[in-house]
Design a protein around this nucleic acid. Structure first.
Lengths: 330, 330
DNA sequence: CTGAAAGCGCTTACAG
DNA sequence: CTGAAAGCGCTTACAG
């Protein structure tokens, strides 16, 4: 069917292929008249430079990689939204890499490099410190800039965009204390994500400052299992408030509490993190820390474009604002 | 830092680069001894062929495109899970394309072609018939196979993987009727997705067969707006059951109903589609049609690999099974 | 401002 | 079974 290449354009416009290339990449170097003629032919033929050939020749693929452990999380989808919108704006393509449970990370990282992305976004918080370090190393060695999005990593030189989860959790706990609650639990996860550790930290700090005893309960991320955990542990405990590190945990706990004849928030106040749809749809509606997930994606992506273009960076650690959305559960 | 290329490997192994390439692509053509020597060097040097160069030379990028209008939907995330797992298995990379509201589709389609994917998965249901057709045309012209995943499209020759939504909706409506419900509404969306049209169709069929009057109410997809719509429309209506075309709509309606002093399911039975987390976390828990979203992704991707490898196909239209998950709301 | 030529890192007929 | 060479479709110094 005769693929339209740079040669066909050059031929039809009566110029060399170098000129066609220049029209596309350095239009200011081409005489207006020539440029317009070439542009017209490009338009007529519907020519688009082959991204692969261009990538090989220019050593830039205009593609960013996104690495995420678990794509199925709803927050990931939301983050993709932000990433994608900015990527379109800056004309970057997106290559998606996932890291299932028992993957060989070394192989995965090599694949990412071999796929020749110009930059990489690491989403979320499921690689451990060592793995993140290896990833950063191999990327650095290959000149691929990385931005951590919603990943906590202590090295002050590593670019990242995140939330101050410790502060958020501190504030939420304070709010409960100010409402007269004393027996406040935090419902965290068994698998310790850095993010959830920070939430535990902020909670603990607020409790201790108030002379209250911090009580951490760790459950599975899986809502279908939560219920039994709750029942097994809380049936003989007394409490008057609980913070879920995720909305789904909080809602799940709220249901448990109500089924046991207690009122929310009068007997037990509950709050969550993330401000997902669950929070609005729960009854009573759930007070939750709003995490600007879309923005986490968008800002990280914008940050990455700057790194890829060697633009100057104000601050390597970007913290986005959270805020408490008060609803009926607290 | 001296990038490891096929030349470095050839040099170190004392063979030509053609042989190195063969070891990787047609190992049976290389003498065992030579092959092992080369493999050892590859291992030692940590060589990985550059995907871009390989793509250009071989005319295959081993990359599939995924086109989706709205990435932020939770069901999309779940589908990515299935796609990604199969893609890893078959060693395909994934390029993600999104189509925001007012995008120039022609440009987008050209971009997808220019990005040189070996195959394309179209997810979900937000392009209209004409747009899908144009996409299929341009892909066909460029030899890029396409599989529609959860997209309804009538042409019997176009490969697709989906659910029989009409049947699912019919069954759900029947169930309500058998439970003695008579004033049954379907809560659909203002923007008419093909998928939701099918749900309306199945519902209408069941109602008419039973001599009942079908009542379609269309609301926004946005849960924060739903509430007002419901109030404005239903405050003076009588009904004893409702089907939400999405779980979120169903839950939202359930909340509305309960706040108006009615009991679910005794006064008003409610059911939804998709069987998301919302369904479990709602109170009462929501009866919902389970859509195997992960499988939709996985099966589509597997299907696409077959097309890309010219394997024989049993049936171009694949329908996955749905089933009703009974909970307390119906 | 424009063209001829080299090169990006591979794959794959073609000889031998 | 292996190597030399052409070619994939571009970009970019280098001359002119």
């Amino acid at each position: 069917m005769g693929k339209v290449t740079i040669y066909s354009v050059a031929l039809a416009a009566g110029v060399s292929l170098a000129t066609v290339s220049r029209v596309l990449n350095h239009p200011e170097k081409v005489k207006t008249e020539t440029r317009e003629r070439v542009l017209k032919v490009i338009e007529e033929l519907g020519y688009r430079p082959d991204a692969i050939a261009r990538g090989l020749a220019s050593r830039k693929t205009t593609t960013v990689g996104i690495l995420v452990s678990d794509v199925t999380r709803a927050s990931v989808a939301e983050m993709f939204g932000g990433i994608s919108d900015i990527a379109i704006q800056y004309k970057y393509a997106i290559k998606l890499f996932t890291a299932p449970e028992n993957i060989d990370y070394d192989e995965l990282f090599k694949t990412i490099i071999a796929e020749r992305v110009d930059g990489l976004l690491l989403l979320n918080d499921e690689l451990d410190h060592q793995q993140v370090k290896e990833l950063l190393d191999i990327c650095e060695k290959n000149g691929v800039p990385v931005v951590l999005a919603n990943v906590l990593f202590d090295d002050p030189k590593v670019p990242s965009v995140s939330i101050d989860y410790e502060k958020a959790s501190y504030e939420l706990t304070r709010l409960m204390i100010e409402n007269g609650k004393k027996e406040i639990y935090i419902l965290s996860t068994v698998r310790t994500y850095n993010v959830n550790e920070k939430k535990e930290l902020g909670y603990t700090k607020a409790m201790e400052e108030a002379g209250l005893e911090p009580k951490i309960f760790r459950t599975s991320g899986d809502t279908s299992v939560n219920r039994k955990h709750f029942d097994g542990y809380f049936h003989d405990k007394h409490l008057d408030a609980a913070i879920g590190v995720r909305d789904s945990i909080a809602v799940s706990f709220m249901n448990y509490v109500r089924e046991n004849g207690k009122r929310v928030p009068e007997d037990v106040a509950v709050a969550g993190f993330q401000n997902t749809k669950y929070a609005t749809l729960a009854s009573p509606s759930l007070t939750s820390i709003d995490i600007p997930v879309y923005d986490l994606g968008a800002v990280s992506m914008r940050f990455l474009t700057k790194l890829m273009n060697n633009e100057s960076i104000d601050d390597v650690k970007v913290i986005l604002n959270h805020y408490i959305v008060r609803r009926k559960s607290l």
